[in-house]
Amino acid sequence: MTMVQVRIMGSDAERVQVVARELLELVRHSQTLRHGDAETLSRRGTGARVYVDIAPADGDTAGPGDDVVIDAEVVTAPVPRRRPRARRALPPGA
């Protein structure tokens, strides 16, 4: 059976762990999915990556050419915009 690998990653290791725990809890209670062991890898700096294999509970039901639909929403804080710096005026005659 072919499993699909899901990667959860971000720059805040604690938040990555919380999201991974919640996602695995949802899959654990699902009647249609099952998951393997989650593997946590550290990233440079403060981030983390969590990998987990997920598959249909009743076997590999998707065949080649079957449509796969993924519905996802990404929620991120807006990136603050830089205020343009004031430029000095050119000297007279320049």
Rank of each mutant, 00 (worst) to 15 (best):
E39L: 14
E22C: 01
V6C: 09
R44G: 09
L26A: 10
S30N: 05
A77N: 13
A38H: 03
P78S: 02
D12S: 06
E22R: 12
A38T: 11
V74M: 14
H35C: 04
T76N: 13
A86L: 04
A38C: 02
G10N: 12
P84K: 04
G47D: 14
Q17E: 07
R49K: 13
S30M: 02
P78G: 09
L90E: 04
G63N: 02
P64W: 07
G65K: 14
R44W: 10
A55L: 04
D60K: 03
T40S: 13
R7H: 15
L41C: 02
A72L: 12
A94D: 12
L41Y: 05
T40G: 07
R82F: 09
E22F: 05
A48E: 01
L41R: 00
T61S: 05
I8E: 00
M3P: 01
A89V: 10
L33F: 05
M3D: 05
R87L: 15
P78K: 08
P91G: 05
A57Q: 06
I8S: 01
V6W: 09
A38F: 04
L23P: 12
A89Q: 15
H29A: 02
L26K: 09
R88E: 11
V4T: 09
V50Q: 11
L41N: 05
G36H: 07
E73A: 03
T46D: 10
L90R: 05
R87F: 13
I70H: 08
I54W: 12
R7L: 14
T46L: 00
R82W: 09
V27W: 03
T40Q: 14
R44N: 08
R21F: 08
T76E: 15
V18A: 04
R81V: 13
A57N: 07
M3Y: 01
R88H: 12
V52Q: 11
A38V: 06
L26C: 09
P78N: 10
R21K: 11
D66N: 11
D67P: 03
D37W: 03
V27L: 03
E73L: 11
T32F: 01
D37E: 08
R28P: 06
S42K: 08
T2E: 05
D67E: 06
D12N: 14
D60E: 01
R15N: 09
V27P: 09
A62I: 06
T61E: 02
M1H: 04
T32G: 06
D67M: 03
P78Y: 07
T76I: 15
A86R: 14
E14P: 05
R44A: 15
D71W: 07
R49Q: 06
R34Q: 07
M3S: 03
T40C: 09
S42R: 07
R21W: 11
R81P: 03
T76H: 14
V79I: 15
R28K: 13
D58T: 11
A72Q: 02
V18Q: 10
L90T: 06
D58I: 13
Y51S: 06
Q5P: 11
R83L: 05
V79W: 14
I8Y: 00
V52M: 02
E22D: 05
L24Q: 07
R15Y: 01
A86G: 03
V74D: 07
T46Q: 06
R49L: 11
P64G: 04
G65V: 12
V74T: 12
A94I: 15
G65H: 12
A13W: 00
M9S: 01
L23M: 15
R15Q: 10
